[in-house]
Every structure is written in C-alpha cells, then in structure tokens.
Design a protein around this nucleic acid. Structure first.
Length: 226
DNA sequence: CGCCAGGGCCTCA
DNA sequence: TGAGGCCATGGC
C-alpha cells in the first residue's frame, strides 16, 4: 500500500466517515444523513456553497445560505431576477459579498445556458473545462462542483491539502501536480475522493492549522513536524 | 486587538 | 509562472 492510501486509512479510522457535502438548507441531510445530492436543488446549493466558501470559513457561509433559502434564492431563475445589490446584502456574512454576488449571477447565467442534465452527461475533462471558463470559478471551486455536486471522481485540492502535504514532506506544490499525486495513488472512486478531501479539511481545521498543534494529530507518525 | 478562514482575478515583471 | 494586491465578514 502506498503512503497516500495509508494516510487516508488512518484519517478515516480516526475521524470516521464525513458524509460530505454539508447540505444545510435543502433539508436533505436531516432526512437521509448523507450530503450526497439527489436533485438539482441539492446540486445548486452545493454550487452556491462552493462559491461562497472561497477563502472563507464555512460558519460564515451557513448564515448566507440561510438568508438565500429564506428568500427562495436556491433557484437559478430567482438568482437571475434579483438585483446584484440585494443579493450582495443577503450574503454579506460570507465576506467578499460584492464579488461573490457577481459570481453567483454569472453562475446562474451559465446554468441557464447549460442545464445540469446536460452538464452531467459530459466527460469530467469537458465539464471541468466549461466550469473553468466561467469567471469566478477556479480549479478548486470547479473540482468541488464536479466532485460534490455531480459525483464524478476528481480530487479537490485546497489550502489545507497543500499545507498538510507540504508538512508531510511531499515535494508537489502546484495544483495540478498535487491533484495528480492523489489521483495516481488512489482508486479512481468518487466516494474515496469525497471522503479524503473532507477528512483533510477536518485535519486542517483541528490539527494542521497555520500554527500547527501536533499533539493529538492522528498522522503525526507520518510527519516530520515543522 | 490581530490573525485567519475549504480562492480567484488582475497586473506586472 | 510567480509574486503581490485586492476583495470583507465573523470567530477566536
């Protein structure tokens, strides 16, 4: 077994299954105890959440999602109709609210022209290319959407992932390189990629923070410290 | 009070 | 292609 796989096993047995994506307003999580999307509304909530959480803690995003939900704005058509200014006020708690309001509007446009049913039929490569062409959607957001909204096997790299694996001593640095490291060393399995990324977020929040606290870190044995 | 959070775009070498 | 500025709130 390779190191990438070993680290996954250790994290999984320590933290347990994470069941991402953390749907919060679509009512799916409470009914089914799983964040897996079942319909287009769930998918849209994930897409919106992925944009809102750019460089922002999930806690701040939840409030914004609640506000959107109250105003029936987990809807492509309703996002189209509302003014960007009003939208910005509703998502204020997520930070960068003017930018993010614009990004949500642009994404709504994109989804009107590219219905999810059609996007779902595309190959991963093609879907990724189309998402990356949308202004405001970079590699991490695109991959989060592909993995968590469309349940296709691609590995999401975020700031936590970069930090954790740098500390572990891996030399891969840029996004694509790091992504390949995971995809080449794991089964190309949607559930594995889903869980692994979620587990890394958990590790990053609780142990491998900017200022690390390694005492109780479950993978301290694989790490040089630092 | 200062630091940081599940990025991405733009500009300028 | 890489570094640096910019966008901003809320938790700790």
């Amino acid at each position: 077994m390779n190191q990438i796989q070993r680290i996954y096993n250790k994290l999984h047995s320590s933290f347990g299954p994470q069941g991402w994506w953390p749907l919060t307003v679509s009512g799916y999580k409470t009914r089914h105890h799983s964040g897996e999307p079942k319909n287009d509304r769930h998918r849209l909530e994930i897409i919106i959440g992925a944009i809102l959480t750019q460089n922002t803690s999930w806690k701040n995003v939840e409030k914004a999602l609640e506000n959107l939900s109250k105003n029936k704005l987990i809807s492509i058509e309703r996002i189209k109709k509302i003014s960007q200014d009003k939208l910005a006020k509703l998502i204020r708690s997520a930070g960068y609210y003017n930018q993010k309001a614009e990004r949500l509007k642009i994404m709504a446009d994109f989804l009107l022209k590219n219905p999810m049913k059609k996007l779902d039929k595309l190959s991963i490569g093609e879907l990724r290319e189309r998402l990356l062409a949308v202004k405001g959607i970079g590699p991490e957001t695109a991959d989060s959407i592909i993995l968590y909204a469309f349940q296709k096997p691609i590995f999401v790299i975020d700031a936590y992932t970069k930090r954790i694996f740098e500390r572990l001593g891996f030399k891969e640095k840029d996004y694509d390189e790091l992504q390949r490291l995971f995809m080449d060393n794991l089964e190309k399995d949607y559930k594995t990629f889903n869980e692994y990324h979620a587990l890394l977020v958990e590790l990053g929040k609780n142990h491998c923070r900017k200022k690390p606290s390694c005492e109780k870190c479950p993978i301290a044995g694989y790490c040089n410290g630092k």
